[in-house]
Simulated assay, not measured.
Amino acid sequence: MLDSVRSTRLRRSTTAAALLTCAALLAGCTSDSGDTSAKSSTAGAKRPAPKPTPTWDPRPDSIASVGDSITRGFDACSVLSDCPEVSWSTGTDMASLAQRLLPDPTRRSWNYAKTGAVVADLPAQLRSATAQRPELVTVMIGANDACQDTVAQMTPAADFRTQFASSLSDLRRALPKTQVYVASVPDLKRLWSEGRKDPVRRQVWKLGICPSMLRDAQSTHERANDRREQVNHRVQEYNAALRDVCAKDVLCRYDGAVHAYRFTGDELSQWDWFHPSKEGQQKLASLAYTEITRRDDA
């Protein structure tokens, strides 16, 4: 009887030990198997290759221009008329940007700027430009947003920023690889400061040219000075918006040199002493060419 009990206990003990051993082995196998699978999965997975950063091409083969009367060559050839032939961007009768950069500027450049245009007109102009699929788009806008009858009518700085950012985003969605050159708004206050000394210019400005800045050109009254300073500040805000928005796009270059440039009398139209003459258009072309052909590491 005692031998039978001992035999039963021994069998139970042996069975329990076997079960514990098996459980341990199974747990070990499961753990090792999981690690191996994870390692195998990690080793086999490949990270997607990073997209190459687009690089600026200093020699685009096509150009479309958008903007206002400056890019249309207004008052550069005859009074109260556009003269796109001498436009700094796409002109055919001068050493324009297109003439300097393109092998065939007549067929590979388009001017969609409009005299009197403000930033709100950019979307329509850019849609026209997009249809040509240019490799470079030039933008010069903002002077008319500031040149209103009164300071209250100037485009608010926040609206200008929003509208320009939206326009650039629309262009980028349509043409992801197109480069953009953005010229700064010229210094309207400096234009007044230099021209107010000339009686001929003062008389011409009375016809209603950029009244927010140039009206009562000789007046040094506090209200006149305050008005001019408000216009000057708004232009600075416009340029800050152009610079900031452009800086977020790797294929966009903003050129503050236009605002910094001091136009001489010969570089201004003798019909309105406001718009660039042929010489002034030539200077704008030179400034643009310098910026567009600049190396990224310069």
Rank of each mutant, 00 (worst) to 15 (best):
S7Y: 00
T15F: 03
T15C: 03
A18K: 05
L19T: 13
C22D: 05
L25Y: 08
A27H: 00
G28F: 13
T30I: 15
S31F: 13
T36P: 00
G44A: 14
R47A: 15
P48L: 13
P58Y: 05
R59S: 13
R59Q: 10
A64S: 08
S65F: 03
C77E: 10
S78W: 03
S81W: 02
P84A: 12
E85V: 09
E85M: 11
S87F: 00
S87I: 00
T90H: 02
M94I: 13
A98V: 00
D104L: 04
R108V: 04
N111C: 07
Y112E: 04
G116P: 11
V118C: 06
V119W: 11
A120K: 09
D121W: 02
R127K: 12
S128F: 07
V139F: 02
C147N: 04
C147H: 02
Q153H: 13
M154K: 06
T155K: 04
A158E: 15
D159P: 00
A165M: 01
S167N: 11
R172G: 02
R173N: 12
A174S: 15
P176N: 09
P176F: 11
W192F: 14
V200G: 00
Q203G: 08
I209F: 09
P211C: 10
S212C: 06
D216A: 00
S219T: 08
N225D: 10
R228M: 07
A247T: 12
Y254D: 04
D255E: 10
D255F: 05
D255I: 04
A260P: 06
W271I: 00
F274R: 13
F274S: 14
H275R: 07
K278W: 03
G280V: 02
L284G: 06
A285H: 01
S286R: 14
E291C: 03
R294K: 15
D296L: 11
